[in-house]
Design a protein around this nucleic acid. Structure first.
Lengths: 245, 245
DNA sequence: GCGCTCCTGTCAATGGCATTGACATCGACA
DNA sequence: TGTCGATGTCAATGCCATTGACAGGAGCGC
């Protein structure tokens, strides 16, 4: 059901891998690409790596995807679907809108960070898969129920999404750098901040430990931003409630 | 004063361009790179393009920067300094903490978006230039004055920065795509959302016009997120005020 | 002024990457 | 059985960062 658009797959099905010339399929390629994309090390998602993973010539992929962009688009869709699936069991009515938004955002982030090499490429494209639109509908409904206007709720949805994708993309990009570079970067920061004179930078100096922590832990920063953002949403809801009374 | 580390510049100065073999300098290269990086079209920041801009062999750049990464780092520093400069004239005490934070974030975003090709590369690196640390000190002070704890203020600073850089990077990346791809992307979204059945997606359908608007206007989304985030900060300040009373 | 030696620009690789076009193979179907 | 379309393979092509060998010119001691 719901055969993905233009693909063929000669009716023999993707199940039983015939021995010679093991025939590929969009499915198999996507799977392999996701697997390659999850390697943490500096390795990026490249056609040759993908070919190796598939045990086929790198260029074979072109028989199934017009170019890398189209592949990335498919991967993005896949990841979005995956992230939606992860929150499907959660009932907004039970956990409350705030916790639900938090979970939605976190699951997107988690899915992306599990495949940094894909995440870096995926960030720029807008997608609209069935699962996603359903999720949007639900998200808007939840926020509307919480007291926001429908359109305002939609705005919050969009903001939350971009916020999450943006920050996550940055984290993924950093995670993809070779370990030494990462350390070098962090060290440079540490040294600079350690040297700031107390007299000129009293506030900064007082915050250095915490800032250093945040520097090492992008997730913490994300949580922080997310919480603050949600506080903002809460404030808007309160404001509307007060005005409407 | 403050001669930039290891550079040489044979005392003749960077001012008068000698005719033959016009000698390069970090300065000149940075300037050229920023100029190249501001081209909107699909063109990226590449050594050959940079070479052309400089009227020199592309590899000449290696005499002044170890590799592209080091160059990008220098460019990032430059842009950060630039963005700090842009808000220097604004007095936080006069415009209030909220407006000031907004301006800080907006100026970073503006500077980056003026050079999308640089922005895409710059996003992952952490910098700590003199101008920036000064700005951080000021930002924390302002938030502290507004009622936040010093460390909490530092957290907000960091969150605001990552939020801004992340979202801006995404926008820059999209802006760099060839125009047809951008349009194609937007169109695909529009079509999908136009086809959603009213019955299943009542809330989404009601929001489609606004969502379409936001889809075309990343700046609007950013403003929206920024405002909500600042609302969150406000809420925190209020909360502390109430508790401390 | 002479030779020495850096400093810095140039040129010609090298190796990774996406993408393309020609060819080969296989399976289905007439 | 012969043809055709779908799909894998191979050998280019072109862009890119980076490197190593070479070259001209500036300062410097003599």
């Amino acid at each position: 059901m719901k055969a993905s658009a233009a693909t063929s797959q000669p009716a023999s099905g993707a199940a039983g891998g015939r021995r010679r010339r093991a025939t590929l399929s969009r499915e198999a390629i996507i799977e392999a690409a996701l697997s390659v994309g999850s390697s943490e090390g500096g390795s990026a998602l490249t056609f040759s790596r993908l070919g190796k993973e598939l045990g086929a010539d790198p260029t074979a992929v072109y028989r199934h995807f017009r170019d890398k962009d189209e592949l990335v688009l498919a991967l993005t869709n896949r990841m979005v679907e995956e992230s939606v699936k992860r929150v499907q069991g959660v009932d907004p009515a039970r956990v409350g809108w705030r916790e639900w938004l938090r979970r939605v955002a976190s699951s997107v982030r988690a899915v992306y960070l599990e495949r940094p090499a894909v995440a870096v490429l995926a960030a720029t494209r807008t997608t609209a898969t069935p699962a996603e639109t359903a999720s949007v509908e639900r998200l808007i409904a939840v926020l509307h129920h919480a007291g926001l206007g429908v359109v305002e709720a939609a705005e919050i949805y969009r903001g939350l999404l971009d916020l999450t994708l943006g920050m996550t993309q940055a984290t993924a990009a950093f995670a993809l750098l070779p370990a030494e570079v990462q350390e070098q970067d962090v060290k440079a920061w540490t040294v600079t901040y350690a040297m700031l004179p107390e007299s000129e930078f009293p506030h900064v100096r007082q915050s250095v430990p915490r800032l250093a922590e945040l520097n090492r832990d992008d997730d913490a920063v994300f949580e922080l931003v997310l919480d603050t953002f949600l506080d903002g949403v809460q404030a808007r809801i309160d404001r509307l409630g007060a005005a409407g009374r």
